[in-house]
C-alpha cells in the first residue's frame, strides 16, 4: 500500500516538463496573437478559440484519465493510481472552468449572448458538476482506501454518464459551430490557423501533464506525511 520508493527527494527542483509546457504555451500564444491573421467574420474575438477548444480537449482528457485510473485502482489497489485520479480530476476542473469562462466571453460578441444552452457548452457544464461532486466526495472521506474506492466508483460512472448527457443535450438543441478542423474533407480553416490551433492543443496537453505531475508530487508528500503521523 505504501510506496516509499516513489517519495520525491526533499529538495524541490523545477519540473522540466513544466518548463517545456510554459515555453510551448508562450510560443503558441505568441503565434496566435501576432502571427495568425484574425478570422474574417468574427474578428479578434475568434482568438479565444485557441484557449477554449484546447481547454475543452484537456477537460475531457483529464476526466477520462480519472475514470481509467479509478477503474485500474479497483483491481490493482495501487495508491499511485488514486493519486493520479485525484490530481487529474482537480486539474480537469480547472480546465473545465476555463472552458466555461471562455465560452461566454466568445459567445457574447459572436452570438450576442453570454450564455446559450448550446449542446456542447451544456455538456461541459454538467461535466463540471459531476467532477466538482467527485472532489467534494473525496473531501469528506477521511480513510485513504475508502476514499479511493468511492472515488473510483463515481469516476467510472461519471465517464459512463457523459455520452448520455451528450445525447440528451444534443437532442435538446444545438447552436454550436460544427467542427471546423476535424472534418473528413479537410479543415475549413486556413492552414496558418490550423497550425496555431494544433500548437495550442499540444501546449495545453503538456500543461495538463505538468500540472498533474506537480499535483501528484503533492499528494505523494501528503500521504507520506500522514503515514509518518500515525507511525506507519
Amino acid at each position: 500500500m505504501t510506496d516509499v520508493s516513489s517519495t520525491p527527494p526533499a529538495t524541490r527542483r523545477v519540473d522540466p516538463v513544466a518548463l517545456l509546457a510554459f515555453a510551448v504555451v508562450a510560443l503558441a500564444y505568441g503565434r496566435a496573437i501576432w502571427f495568425t491573421p484574425p478570422e474574417a467574420t468574427q474578428g479578434f474575438a475568434q482568438k479565444i478559440l485557441y484557449v477554449h477548444a484546447p481547454a475543452a480537449w484537456v477537460a475531457f482528457l483529464a476526466f477520462g484519465v480519472t475514470a481509467l485510473a479509478g477503474a485500474f485502482w479497483l483491481f490493482l489497489k495501487d495508491q499511485r493510481l488514486d493519486r493520479l485520479a485525484e490530481s487529474s480530476a482537480e486539474v480537469g476542473v480547472i480546465f473545465t472552468t476555463a472552458v466555461l469562462v471562455t465560452g461566454p466571453l466568445w459567445g457574447k460578441p459572436v452570438w450576442g449572448t453570454w450564455w446559450t444552452w448550446d449542446a456542447r457548452l451544456t455538456l461541459t457544464l454538467f461535466l463540471w458538476f459531476i467532477y466538482v461532486g467527485y472532489l467534494v466526495l473525496r473531501g469528506v472521506i477521511p480513510g485513504r482506501e475508502q476514499r479511493a474506492r468511492y472515488a473510483a466508483v463515481v469516476g467510472i460512472l461519471g465517464a459512463l454518464l457523459i455520452p448520455f448527457i451528450h445525447l440528451s443535450v444534443y437532442l435538446f438543441r444545438t447552436l454550436h459551430p460544427l467542427p471546423v478542423v476535424a472534418r473528413p474533407e479537410g479543415p475549413a480553416m486556413p492552414t496558418v490557423m490550423v497550425k496555431t490551433f494544433f500548437l495550442a492543443f499540444f501546449a495545453f496537453t503538456l500543461l495538463y501533464v505538468a500540472f498533474v505531475r506537480a499535483r501528484m508530487a503533492l499528494a505523494t508528500e501528503r500521504d507520506a506525511l500522514d503515514d509518518a503521523a500515525v507511525g506507519g
Partner: peptide
Amino acid sequence: LTANTRLAELLLPVLALPFFVPIVMPAAQ
C-alpha cells in the same frame, strides 16, 4: 455510497442530480 459519509444528506443530491439529467430531460420532453 453516501450513507457512510459525513454530510450524507447534502452529498446525495450533489452527486446524483447530474446523473438524473439524461432521465429527467427525456422524460419531461
